[in-house]
Design a protein around this nucleic acid. Structure first.
Lengths: 232, 232
DNA sequence: GCGCGTGCGTTCCTATAGGATTTGTGGCAT
DNA sequence: ATGCCACAAATCCTATAGGAACGCACGCGC
């Protein structure tokens, strides 16, 4: 093993330490999100263990957790595979689910917004505006991250653990679709304006308007994506 | 093990076999739902392995999956514990989340209802009416099961994998609360009437009314529970 | 040529062993 | 009596080994 000292325990991190399965989980999640693991690809337990230089046991545990997020699927005695690409129907269902949850999150978040939360939201929109959005993944990665962060912050500010959990499950799928939907970033200006509209409603403290702006945003995202990607 | 022939492959069930971790998962889920594992109790990996007469490995995998459902919580290097009892705030959040998702499910289910689905719903309401509802868990278990089944069927009929997944996460928590909310079944007549109202709207094919009746039901459930259980 | 059984490598699945960590207990000094 | 340290048991965590199942290629018979 490369590192003979398993318990590094860097000074200042006495609590909430991480075990190997956590690192494996994060590594796999990152690989799923940045396209290193493509949809449909097999995720071999032993293979990942070799790749990450750990034993299969923590890999198995990490995959068991990932399965429940919908990122990978398991077939008994056959192993795990990365979830297949979204069909048009899958995407429509995902947007339908977003339309059920995100406006509610926006309304609640607006009512319960903290000053720090609002600052974080403003920062996310600012990052959206300044993020580079070139043609390669590395170039628009920051943009995607800011987009996801914006929605995630709203879900968190709604201050409801169940809605947050529900959104987080969707959020992973949304992020994965953004990556494999395959159209890069073609709608940045419009998307930024829609995000700004949601933020403005939040700033002015108008929950109903925040919800309405979120509905508007998600519907327009759906419209643009359905027009852009007639793949299926 | 009782069955020495692992690949019995009973006629009609050639596919989708189960491995030990699946059985462990189901056993733990059942114990969590029965109340055999009480909130706050430690769920020792080795202990459960001894209890179920398997090795710790499949237990670890089952618990990793369960963690994502919110039924158990994990602390690194300390182990798993059954999620604590709901506080009043937790319950309010759960109902808020239900109000966001279930009416949408009801609306969509009404639009997309199949004849078989409607029959299953009618059966669930019928079971609610006829189920015994005595004082012990064994006596009102059938009632709880029919209640959960009614909502689960609606979520399934909404025909949206993401909304279904979101509901299922909530559904487990709802069921767990019903058990540990601690007030038994005191509102059967009213609850049955509310379920019937949802079913009637579904039968008549009125999606908006179905959604409205669902809102009404969940709000009344919240009201009754908040009045019954001023525990916190 | 085509279907089918056989053999082999890969992978999954489970059990087991041992190191690392936490927790509870008892003794000691203050 | 209180606080602190050492020790021990229980538990978690990781690695490893071996049995079982799967997938694939090869070869045989029709």
């Amino acid at each position: 093993m490369a590192d003979p000292s398993p318990t590094v325990a860097r000074a200042g991190f006495p609590v909430s330490r991480q075990v190997l399965a956590d690192h494996v989980y994060e590594a796999l999640l990152e690989w799923l999100m940045d396209g290193r693991l493509e949809p449909g690809a097999a995720v071999s337990i032993d293979g990942m263990a070799r790749e990450l230089d750990v034993s299969p046991t923590p890999v198995r545990e990490a995959l068991a957790r990932l399965e429940h997020t919908g990122m990978v699927r398991r077939v008994a005695l056959k192993g795990y595979r990365v979830a297949p690409v979204f069909t048009r129907e899958d995407f429509a269902e995902l947007m339908e689910a977003r339309l059920s949850i995100e406006p509610v999150n926006a309304r609640l978040a607006c009512s319960r917004m903290t000053p720090d939360g609002l600052d974080a939201l403003k920062q996310a929109v600012e990052d959206l505006k300044t993020a580079p959005r070139g043609g390669t993944f590395a170039e628009y990665r920051g943009y995607l991250e800011a987009d996801e962060r914006f929605h995630q912050l709203i879900a968190a500010q709604a201050n409801n653990q169940f809605l947050l959990a529900a959104y987080n499950t969707l959020g992973g799928q949304i992020q994965r679709f953004r990556l494999f939907g395959g159209v890069g970033i073609t709608d940045a200006e419009q998307a930024i304006a829609e995000h700004q509209a949601v933020l403005d409603a939040m700033t002015s403290g108008d929950p109903e308007k925040a919800a309405a702006m979120m509905v508007d945003h998600v519907e327009k995202v759906r419209g643009r994506a359905m027009a852009d990607a007639p793949s299926d």
